[in-house]
């Protein structure tokens, strides 16, 4: 039933109900509802300005919707911050790369594990015993991600010096380091060439397959979206206009109108 075989799509992991978000007079989202099931790859598509990124920002607590409910792992929440979202297992990447430019690839990926590190300031200052052990454990975990993403050779390079495609990969690595249950990817393939896109697709599918991570992604490359996603939700002007499997969405008249325009 799925594109990648081994994994099983499970129950609903995240459900957004009737979300409305506006900035002053601009309505970014109005009455959007959909759900994301465990282990699936869920694409959010739509023309520019449709409210896709706003939707991700709502899910990870960066924007607070005026109306609506977000139910994650059976717990409804309305007003939580990004920190709470992160600690409950939601990680994300950004449309325009948001890496820590002054730090190396390794350090960037290690920041993804900060929530899992517990030793306090005094132990850290000593860097001895439990603090050192903790650091080594997490270094090993970070190395597994570095191996997985095939970025061993740039481990110690400051990310500011890396080419764009690799920066995108490091950002994915930082999000993966948090071992999220739900991974939000905001245009993971924007601005990449075909080869880099293929690599990124492979990584996304492998993450989904090997770690069982649920993925919600925004992407403009329709070929990619239709190939890798299990279900697609389509937004236009802040409203949901279609929701279903890639094939259903592809044939939907409203979607074709939204993308190609319609004569009035």
């Amino acid at each position: 039933m799925t594109a990648t075989g081994g994994r099983r799509i499970g129950d609903v992991l995240l459900k957004v109900e009737d979300i409305s978000l506006s900035f002053g007079g601009v309505r970014a989202l109005s009455g959007v509802s959909f759900d994301i099931r465990k282990h699936e790859i869920r694409a959010i598509i739509g023309p520019n300005g449709a409210g896709k990124s706003s939707m991700l920002n709502v899910i990870n607590g960066f924007y607070h919707p005026q109306k609506g409910k977000i139910i994650f792992k059976d717990i409804a929440r309305t007003d939580i911050g990004p920190y709470d979202a992160a600690s409950r297992g939601i990680a994300r990447t950004f449309q325009n790369i948001a890496l820590f430019r002054g730090m190396s690839t390794l350090d960037n990926i290690m920041t993804g594990r900060l929530l899992k590190m517990k030793r306090n300031l005094f132990w850290q200052a000593l860097y001895w015993g439990p603090a050192r052990r903790e650091e080594m454990e997490h270094r090993a975990a970070a190395e597994r991600i570095i191996d997985f993403l095939e970025i061993q050779s740039i481990r110690k390079v400051p990310v500011g010096r890396l080419p764009y495609g690799l920066q995108k990969r490091v950002e994915l690595g930082r999000a993966l380091a948090a071992e999220p249950e739900l991974l939000l990817l905001d245009e993971p393939m924007a601005g990449m060439n075909v080869e880099e896109k293929e690599d990124m697709c492979r990584f996304i599918l492998d993450v989904n397959d090997e770690f069982g991570t649920t993925i919600a992604l925004i992407e403009h490359d329709m070929g990619v979206v239709m190939d890798i996603s299990d279900r697609v939700v389509v937004l236009d002007y802040g409203k949901k206009i279609a929701d279903g499997t890639p094939d259903e969405v592809r044939g939907n008249q409203a979607v074709i109108d939204a993308y190609l325009g319609v004569q009035h």
């Binding site: 990004p82 979202a85 992160a86 730090m103 920041t111 948090a178």
Partner: peptide
Amino acid sequence: RSWMAIRDMDIAAEIIG
């Protein structure tokens, strides 16, 4: 690392927890 993350990009730092 948490200090440097805040220095380099505070929004991203907040989102990774």
